Simulated scan of single mutants.
Amino acid sequence: KVSAIEREYTALDGDRLVGTGERLTLTADQVFKAIGQSFVPAALNGSGAEVALEAGRIKVDAEGRTSLANVWAGGDCIFGGDDLTVSAVAQGRDAAESIHRALTSNGRA
């Protein structure tokens, strides 16, 4: 069970980050760990259908739709996407709402 996370401020010492000893404790009941994934666009385009890219990221419209029919994307793999969990979660919510509208609009996705 998680009750808090403790952070330590850092400072540059030459070319290294070192702890300053100053700490900050934040109460929490959940922690999402960033695992350092990297986006590999070539992995998307092996099945014959190619997703449109912009600056090496997936191009989406305002609702998160990609150039592929019935495919949405969000998070740091999309063009202009933030590398932040909260942004990716919000984009997932927005895409889910868009998917719901598409599925309930008499098949006009």
Rank of each mutant, 00 (worst) to 15 (best):
Q37D: 09
A96R: 11
F79A: 14
C77V: 15
T66W: 07
I58L: 13
A73C: 09
R23M: 08
V31G: 05
D94T: 14
F39D: 06
T25F: 11
D15L: 10
S87H: 02
A73T: 12
G48E: 05
V40K: 15
L53M: 13
L24A: 14
V18H: 00
L17G: 01
D82T: 06
V86D: 00
L44H: 14
I5Q: 07
A11Y: 02
R23C: 04
A55V: 00
A49W: 15
V40S: 12
D15R: 10
K33S: 05
D76T: 07
G14W: 02
A88Y: 04
G92V: 00
S67M: 03
L26H: 13
I78F: 03
S87F: 02
R108S: 15
S3W: 04
F32M: 05
L103Y: 07
L26S: 00
T104M: 11
L26F: 11
E50K: 12
S105K: 13
A69P: 02
F32Y: 01
A11L: 04
L53K: 02
F79E: 12
S38I: 04
P41L: 13
I5W: 04
C77A: 10
H100E: 09
A62T: 05
V40Q: 15
G19M: 09
N106E: 07
A55S: 05
K59S: 15
L17W: 03
G19P: 08
V60M: 06
Q91I: 01
A102S: 14
K1C: 07
